[in-house]
Design a protein around this nucleic acid. Structure first.
Lengths: 147, 147
DNA sequence: CCGGATCCGAAAAGATACTG
DNA sequence: CAGTATCTTTTCGGATCCGG
């Protein structure tokens, strides 16, 4: 859609640009489920308890936005599942950061946790500056606008 | 509100719990602006181009959710500004991770960038596992549900 | 049965005008 | 300046239906 493209280019803020594509609850939860291995329409629908039309719209939007791709796994009857693209897989760390925040500040009751398959330890996602390793939030940052 | 509390405790997924509180575009952009120093209603409204009733609702919701707090800076006339709580400030790294994703995958045209005030370098946010320093996404992860 | 599409009432978003 | 009131438009979510 052209309007989307216009809005995307209208702001120089990468946060706004990112949110333009996936900034709603259902889309992020759909990504989470697909990453969990729930790659088919009905698996996601029952997992989330989402209305079918809403899920269909989200899947189409995420596919058009380049985060998912459909793959036909059955010809008759025609059946597709949804796989993460590189861009979609690259968003998973953001979900991990949100999970860590949610666990810190909304942690009443039992929580599911991320486990590293290699050695079984509980993963603790944290956002750092790749350049110097400092956790984001420990230094004062400034937003520099493009000329 | 009790219904909120019920829904929050209904799922063990910390991603869903986090999104329950801030999982929409406007709320995240409001947090971004306040972190930028735009702490007053009108500054945020003109910055975002958001409808006044929508902004009022978001500010109330974020305050009630414990991410913002109102501070009265003028008694007559009564004027408040909005400051980040600890929980709100702790969400800023998530925004940084979203920004990095948005810059990587939606980077046509000029982008604003995060600058470290101490030495002026361009910050590159990345999500890692605090336990071993491995970037999230490089190892296979599993979600462990509570008993 | 699976993967949607369609329709409809309810809810929220958005624009504008107005108020303390 | 910081919202509220009102109105219109869009979206959500549930139920149902349809093709393979």
């Amino acid at each position: 859609m052209d309007t989307t493209q216009e809005k995307l280019c209208a702001t120089p803020c990468p946060i706004a640009r990112g949110l333009e594509r996936i900034g709603d609850r259902w889309s992020m939860l759909v990504l989470r489920d697909i990453e969990r291995g729930l790659t088919r329409y009905d698996l996601i629908r029952t997992s989330l308890g989402i209305a079918p039309n809403i899920l269909a719209r989200r899947l189409s939007a995420l596919t058009e936005a380049g985060l998912l791709e459909k793959r036909r796994y059955s010809q008759r009857p025609p059946r597709d599942d949804y796989l993460l693209t590189d861009a979609g897989r690259d968003f998973i760390p953001v979900l991990a950061a949100i999970a860590a925040w949610g666990a810190r500040h909304n942690g009443e009751g039992a929580l599911s946790r991320l486990i590293d398959e290699q050695d079984g330890h509980v993963v603790e996602p944290i956002v750092i500056d790749k350049v110097n390793g400092a956790p984001i939030g420990t230094r004062r940052l400034r937003i520099e606008l493009p000329e």
